[in-house]
């Protein structure tokens, strides 16, 4: 079942990537990146069990934290530049 879960995660990562490419709004892209990030966390955790290397979990842990920070970062700078160009983007 681990392998099946890993494949499902890979498929969803590909789907999130397609959404990130299609857009259409910037928010869709941010959503897709966030989705991609959490799926990577899960994939690394599952891969750790699949290959019998549970020390992969430290990396998954890093991701769970870093992913949040980068999503906040994108929002912060997007709102900032939007405030400057008076909502020309989006």
């Amino acid at each position: 079942m681990l392998a099946g879960t890993a494949i499902a995660l890979l498929v969803v990562m590909a789907m999130a990537l397609i959404r990130a490419l299609l857009g259409p709004t910037i928010y869709d892209r941010i959503l897709a990146v966030n989705l991609f990030g959490t799926k990577t966390v899960l994939l690394i955790a599952v891969a750790g069990f699949l290959f019998g290397r549970p020390d992969f979990l430290d990396i998954a842990l890093t991701y769970a934290l870093i992913n949040f920070i980068s999503v906040i970062g994108v929002l912060r700078f997007f709102e900032y530049s939007n405030a400057q160009t008076d909502g020309k983007g989006a």
């Binding site: 079942m1 681990l2 099946g4 879960t5 499902a8 969803v12 799926k39």
Partner: peptide, 15 residues
């Protein structure tokens, strides 16, 4: 794991 994989997949389709 199976239910999780299924829900992940359906969520991906939804996105």
């Amino acid at each position: 794991l199976a239910l999780g994989a299924f829900l992940i997949f359906s969520g991906g389709v939804g996105v």
